[in-house]
Every structure is written in structure tokens, then in C-alpha cells.
């Protein structure tokens, strides 16, 4: 474990806590894409198949359980919880995310570290996470200005993978045979997708204005 990866995990945890806070405090999920939340739940469920077979550390197991439980709780909340469900922007959240699932699975079958069930699903989860934010960014663009908590949620979610990029650079130089190029290339794409959001987020912070993505 290095500081970059720990900071990345904490940033990821913060993004989830901010989203839970927004939904709980405002009893609303307006501006949040259910499709992105469903994709993230799928990412965690397919990435942590080794939850019960490979014990890495208490930290690793606990964090995996937190990520799986929170992502499922958010999807459940947005689908089932009466009050929250009514605030969902159903007509704006129309990204065909099943295409992302199909494309990432096809890619995972072709490009993986080893042609085994677990490795294919791991590669699938890595590719899917890279594009999982797309429905959320599209919804953001359509819904004009967003509330602060939603903006912060997306900011921390994007920042965590940027920290992971630093972690992979650090591990590449400090560990003899560290190579996780699938995660690394995917992480670069994932962080790149946030580029314009980061730009407008920075502008809104600098001008102390509401976050607005150009339509």
C-alpha cells in the first residue's frame, strides 16, 4: 500500500459518502444517473468475485464489502424508495448503458490477463468502470446546473482514479515486476473522460459560481 493508493481509496470512499449524504439529506436523487449507479454496482460485483477466495487484508475485504453494499443500497434507494424514486430524472437519464455493458464484456473476452472466468470478469469490471460515468455526465449536461453535493460527488469520483494513476506509476518504479497495464490504460481513459468536467468544476470554484456544463 502506498500513499497514492490509500488517498485514492479514501477519495473514492468520500465520493460514495457525499452521494449517500445528498440522497439522505435532500431525500432526492435529482441530477444523479441511476444508470451510472447500476453500472458501478456491476463493476464492484464483477471485480470482487475473489472476495471469499483471496484474502489480501482486513482493509481490502472491508473496503470491498463497503463498495458493494453502498452501490447496491444506492441503486435500491433510487429504484424502490418512494420519496427518492419520485425525484429521479427518468426522462433525462436515457443513456443506453446496456451497450456499454455489451461492449466492455466483448472487449474483456478479447483482451484480458488470462482467459479464466475470474480474469475475464475482472477485465470487464475495469473497462466498465472507465465508461460508467458517461450516463452521469450526459445527465449533467442535460440537467443544466447541478447542486453542490452532486458536483462534489463527481469530482471525488474522478479524482480517485487520477490518484490510482500515480499509484501505478509509483509501483512501476518501486516494484520489480509490477505490470497492470489493463487497469492503467483503462484508468487513463477513465480520468480523461472527466477532463472537461474538471475544467468546468475548477472554473465554478475559481469564479465562485454555480457549476454549469455547456449544453
Amino acid at each position: 500500500m502506498n500513499i497514492f493508493r490509500f488517498a485514492g481509496d479514501m477519495t473514492h470512499l468520500i465520493s460514495i459518502l457525499v452521494l449517500l449524504l445528498k440522497i439522505y439529506a435532500t431525500k432526492s436523487c435529482s441530477g444523479i444517473s441511476l444508470k451510472t449507479q447500476e453500472l458501478y454496482a456491476l463493476v464492484f460485483l464483477t471485480r470482487y468475485l475473489d472476495l471469499f477466495t483471496d484474502f489480501i487484508s482486513v482493509y481490502n475485504t472491508v473496503m470491498k464489502l463497503v463498495f458493494i453494499a453502498s452501490s447496491l443500497a444506492i441503486v435500491w434507494c433510487m429504484r424502490m424508495h418512494g420519496l427518492v424514486k419520485r425525484s429521479y430524472d427518468k426522462e433525462l437519464d436515457t443513456f443506453r448503458h446496456y451497450l456499454l455493458v455489451a461492449g466492455c464484456f466483448a472487449l474483456a473476452v478479447l483482451v484480458n490477463e488470462k482467459f479464466t472466468f475470474q480474469e475475464i470478469f475482472w477485465a470487464f469490471s475495469i473497462y466498465l468502470e472507465a465508461v460508467a460515468i458517461l450516463p452521469q455526465l450526459v445527465l449533467l449536461q442535460r440537467s443544466g446546473n447541478v447542486d453542490n453535493l452532486t458536483g462534489q460527488y463527481i469530482f471525488f469520483l474522478g479524482a480517485y482514479r487520477a490518484l490510482y494513476l500515480l499509484n501505478w506509476i509509483y509501483r512501476y518504479f518501486t516494484e520489480v515486476r509490477f505490470s497492470r497495464w489493463i487497469a492503467c490504460v483503462s484508468g487513463i481513459v477513465q480520468t480523461g473522460l472527466y477532463a472537461d468536467f474538471f475544467y468546468y468544476y475548477f472554473l465554478s470554484w475559481k469564479n465562485n459560481a454555480k457549476l454549469q456544463l455547456p449544453a
Binding site: 473514492h12 489480501i56 481490502n60 475482472w122
Partner: peptide, 10 residues
Amino acid sequence: DANDVAKDEL
């Protein structure tokens, strides 16, 4: 080889 190492990252 390196790939056999369990995935230690989240």
C-alpha cells in the same frame, strides 16, 4: 509470474 499475484488493489 506477476499476473498470478492476487489482485491486491480495489
